[in-house]
Design a protein around this nucleic acid. Structure first.
Length: 421
DNA sequence: TCTGGGGTCCTAGGACCC
DNA sequence: TCTGGGGTCCTAGGACCC
């Protein structure tokens, strides 16, 4: 059996843990630049039919009218709360697959002597007691069924957020209950095509001939189909694979016409992704840089372009990467536009121990350098960009993200601890 | 005025190799 | 007139996830 545990309205719940005055009240969390809604708690969902990813400025009146509390996103807080939850889950099973910031699969192998429902409740209660976060637990024979069990745990009040699918009858009942779009891995496009041929429920989907599923939905669909029949096809990944690409593409706080400011932002994003690259002990072979104007705008002239630079020797050295990215940026920048976003992406990632030099250069200089190690230690200890390239600028950056309503970083900054009194 | 960000996997088709 | 066969690698595009 596999357990799937996920946190309810995770971001909104994290905010509420530290704000008892908001318990039972509608809360939403906003995207970068406070642009749109990315999370809403139960009360907010009930109230207004707020569509996820709706632009905030379009529904400001609704939010005000219903006294919905809005938070800018605070990923430092969410990431740290997530670690606490995952740590607690580790006390329930020796193998945990952290699937996302708020979800994990637990391998229940060898625990068959245990009462699963009672165990599930224990998970839920311990996590709530230790972190204040509400979770749902679904337990079933395969990952896809566990996801489904988790959904039932949350949606059917009688189950009280814990559901164990441990008999054939329960599996069939679940398939009859679920819409085809509720199945993990079946998205919008496939729902349309399935409904067009009369497939509305999960049970209809598993009754389709496998050949049709294979042909129309590839091997991905075939695996889903089998998993729903109780045949396990998806690997349990306790140790996450190394990333194959590391990138960032954030919109600026305001539109930028000048190359100088965009260079700063670009250098800053490179600084961020290079840190992640070194954390997994990899080097990058290619740098992708892309530049965009605001595609929503009807008044601005539109332009976007991208380019890829191949590094002479794969590297994870921030300064080399910044120099190369800057070169790429110069190739695609055209004056006369108001830019909204620069994207950087590192690909062709290889282990830093496997970097191949060339006739003229030794790889040792480009990976695993003392300088980068020292930089990482300092920045981890004293805060991001304590020591960094001067390319990212020193004044208040015009490209910085807007976060008007960010909550304190209660769990990671001494000065932002919760005060009671 | 104001509209998110970071990923993965799969397939088809082109280019290329021997 | 008649134009092989087996394979790999890369990329773009599509679909999906949170």
């Amino acid at each position: 059996m596999i357990a799937m545990v996920d946190c309810n309205s995770f971001y909104a719940s994290c905010e509420q843990v530290f704000r008892p005055d908001l318990w039972g009240k509608p809360v939403v969390v906003l995207s970068n630049n406070d642009g749109c809604i990315i999370a809403a708690n139960k009360e907010a969902k009930l109230l207004t039919h707020i569509p996820m990813f709706e632009a905030v400025y379009k529904i400001k009146h609704i939010l005000r009218e219903h006294k919905v509390t809005c938070f800018s996103s605070n990923y430092t807080l969410y990431g740290e709360m997530s670690q606490r939850v995952m740590h607690i889950l580790g006390t329930f099973s020796p193998s945990v697959e952290v699937y996302s910031i708020d979800e994990a699969f637990l391998d229940m192998h060898g625990l068959s002597h245990i009462n699963m429902r009672a165990y599930g409740f224990e998970m839920k209660e311990r996590i709530y007691r230790y972190t204040g976060l509400p979770v749902g637990v679904g337990i079933a024979p395969t990952k896809v069924l566990a996801k489904l069990a988790n959904r039932m745990a949350k949606k059917i009040p009688a189950y009280d957020h814990v559901y164990v699918m441990d008999t054939e009858a329960k599996r069939i009942a679940a398939l009859q209950w679920a819409d085809v779009g509720d199945i993990w891995g079946i998205g919008r496009k496939h729902v349309q095509r399935l409904q067009a041929i009369g497939v509305f429920k999960a049970i209809d989907f598993v009754e389709l001939p496998l050949a049709w599923v294979r042909k129309e939905m590839t091997i991905v669909g075939e695996r889903l189909w089998k998993e729903l029949q109780g045949e396990s096809c998806l690997e349990f990944m306790e140790i996450p694979n190394l990333k194959k690409a590391i990138g960032t593409a954030k919109s600026f706080g305001q539109k930028l016409p000048d190359l100088g400011r965009i260079e700063e932002a670009c250098a800053y994003y490179i600084t961020e992704v290079a840190e992640v690259l070194r954390a997994q002990k990899s080097c990058a072979t290619y740098i992708h840089v892309a530049l965009y104007t605001n595609y929503h705008s009807t008044v601005d002239k539109q332009y976007s372009n991208r380019t890829i630079i191949t590094l002479p020797i794969p590297t994870n050295d921030t300064f080399t990467l910044i120099t190369q990215a800057r070169k790429a940026l110069h190739q695609i920048y055209k004056s006369g536009y108001r830019y909204k976003k620069v994207a950087v992406n590192l690909t062709g990632l290889i282990p830093q121990s496997h970097v191949q030099g060339n006739l003229f250069e030794q790889p040792s200089k480009s990976a695993d350098s003392k300088l980068m190690k020292t930089l990482d230690i300092l920045n981890r200890k004293f805060g991001k960009t304590t020591v960094s390239s001067a390319m990212i600028g020193t004044r208040v950056q015009e490209w910085e993200l807007i976060k008007r309503e960010r909550s304190p970083r209660y769990t990671t900054q001494w000065r932002e601890l919760l005060e009671i009194g």
